[in-house]
Design a protein around this nucleic acid. Structure first.
Lengths: 228, 228, 228, 228
DNA sequence: GATGAATGAGGGTTCATTCAT
DNA sequence: TATGAATGAACCCTCATTCAT
């Protein structure tokens, strides 16, 4: 979760084969494996670019290949077909954050502190990285890839929401935030999502300061404690 | 499905043929024109169905024609091409609400009252109608149709946000709501958007009560006034 | 069975749609149907040419289209895919002879007479027509199209063999031919098959007079009666 | 499968590398050559398997390699291309029998005796071995490989037919068989061919006893002597 | 206007062949 | 010599668009 894709492109994360078996730190790969993993990453990066700008259907593998500077056929050495490429792209991008998220709910601190930290994390690790595009792809293509939507819900979203719920619950117990928020953790996530959509569609007409918006939102919700 | 379209048929300008020659205001149509307009609506309704479930690229005009119970070629008598069909579909669905929205900002009432009314309007006029699909299409396809994104921003979204801003400003002046909200009217809209996305992707795993969520959200924001 | 494909190409047999519903004699088709049926025949004729010279796998639908003087896509208006085209080609060519064959066994005449008639029929209706190519295709491609092999066996071959068996049995009873032949009707058909194979592979090195060979074969078998 | 190939390995000239430089008769090979020759055989055996079941076009060299348990590229160290592999496969399989055949015509014995011996040879050396597949491949693919058809005709078939002719001629002189058979030696071979085709296409519906069929055929032809 | 057959460009996928290691 | 990753031409099939009826 600490590495954005941009970063990983430079570092060539030590993934080999389909499974994404992490090689840990300091474990060196043989050249063959390294090259294979690198190729895979290059293709995924190119695919992300194309899928993000054109959408799944409109993306031509020809363009992915061109962008990755490989031959079209090479893609098929690494991915079964276009759909697999898409699905593995999303899985690969989401997988590393799964672990991190599951631990978030355990953190105990005043919501004001926690919120700031989470917002910062979201902005730096999602909004300002390629993961923003992944989330966008999930939103725009998710309906036609129920498998992916399910995977995302099960492995990512449900954990995020559970974590948020846990945090909110404790905050509510401390009187930091109204109790109702527990029922709709989506509310806390909403501005982040909206920012991602906004950035894709309307940024050019009217820029949006995500961080400020999210901060404002949390502030308002925190402020509401005294009233409830 | 037919509801909102039927509604829009009455309200929408009676565009006929390619150009969209307006038939004037309140002027009844001759039979020929009526038939033409009707055909157009049938095609648009079918197109909405297909585009909503498959997305722009994956939609086959063949299927649109089949659903509209007309021949494939007939579509081209009413729309220049697939893209036009898509764009006009969205325009036609959005147009009737433009007028309504522009007046919303003028309404003056306690935010608590207004909010309830707006939420109700959103749920009844958007969330529970085909317009939800239109919004979803805007979200999912908007990036590849800058024209449409712009149209939507200029004709709909900017007005909605301006109206919300005006409302919030007055509410803030009355101390009903913190002043910061004026800077991010998106915050107020966010739960609605999130609900639309959620319904398409995750409803089957975990249903979401839009109305309750939006109500909760507004309540919390209203409650925050005393603190600011 | 009386019409060879060459003939049918000129006459445009009144087939319409996939089913091959014979329109009988003198029943006129509407122009649309006639055109459709004609197109189908043109494609089938071109397909036969290509499949015969190149085999199923090596045949490019592009070439079939070119030969039929239609666009590539048109083929798909008449046949689901390449395999269907192949299968329907064979079925269509075999179907008309099925009825004829089933009646052959009933004919009662001295084998010498019958044989001559059958040989003549084979040469004129199969060997000297496109049906020779169909049989060749069955031989060369049958293994990879078990459906077709089965169809051919069930609908054609088994009837041919049964008919031959019946004929031979009666002939044996009359002492015209040895009884053992009943067990291997294939023997009587063998020279015909061999001629078809020979014509495709070795004709250029050494021509083969089918009719004479088949006549000789039957003569020899008939001559063997006195010995058995 | 391995039987006939194993046999041919002993008999066949130890071709090595592209050109087929003969290693002389009875000269033992050095280890390098032995290994090379062995590799070649392994590839050919795998190729035979694949070509037999799929046909030339549908066979993927990848599968041949997999079956031979070598890398795909290795094939190209032993054969120029797919077509060469196919042609050399057939040549290699046919070559060892060429010598044998040429001598058959010289044998002098009553046709009844000879025939039995030849049938037995055919069944044991062809029908029950991989050579049956080679013959089948000749039949099914021969048209698109004129070179091979010619080779087969020149080196094998013409000799077989000449031998048969010689045998028949002498038999006819002895009155064992009618004279006309000399003109169509194909007649004697026909049941063998038909059996090979039959086994590939219709065995599953109706088994065929080759040996009995061929025996019956010869018996009938022999019986016809008294009548002519 | 309405039809739906016809078109043909385009894209996903395969696979023979090459080549760096 | 052996490998197998990489290449890219080829081919099946789809589908937006056109057009004769």
């Amino acid at each position: 979760m600490t590495r954005s894709l941009a970063a990983s492109k430079k570092t060539a994360p030590a993934k080999v084969g389909r499974g994404g078996t992490s090689a840990g730190k300091g474990v060196s790969l043989n050249p063959r494996q390294a090259r294979t993993a690198e190729r895979r990453e290059v293709i995924l990066a190119a695919a992300l670019d194309e899928f993000s700008t054109r959408g799944f259907e409109a993306t031509r593998l020809d363009d992915v290949a061109k962008r990755a500077k490989i031959a079209k056929g090479t893609i098929y050495l690494y991915f079964r077909d276009k759909e697999s490429l898409f699905q593995e792209l999303i899985r690969d991008m989401l997988t590393p954050i799964i672990g991190t998220i599951q631990n978030v709910g355990a953190i105990d601190a005043p919501l004001a502190v926690l919120a700031e930290r989470l917002i910062d994390m979201f902005v730096r690790e999602v909004y300002e990285t390629r993961r923003k595009d992944i989330v966008r792809l999930l939103i725009t293509e998710g309906r036609r890839f129920p498998k992916i939507a399910e995977f995302y819900y099960r492995e990512v979203l449900s954990h995020i929401l559970a974590a948020v719920r846990a945090i909110v619950r404790r905050a509510a117990e401390r009187g930091e935030v109204p109790r109702q928020l527990v029922d709709f953790p989506q509310i806390l996530v909403a501005p982040g999502l909206v920012a991602i959509i906004w950035s894709g569609l309307f940024e050019r007409f009217e820029p949006l300061d995500v961080r400020a918006m999210m901060k404002t939102h949390v502030d308002l919700l925190l402020a509401s404690r005294k009233a409830s």
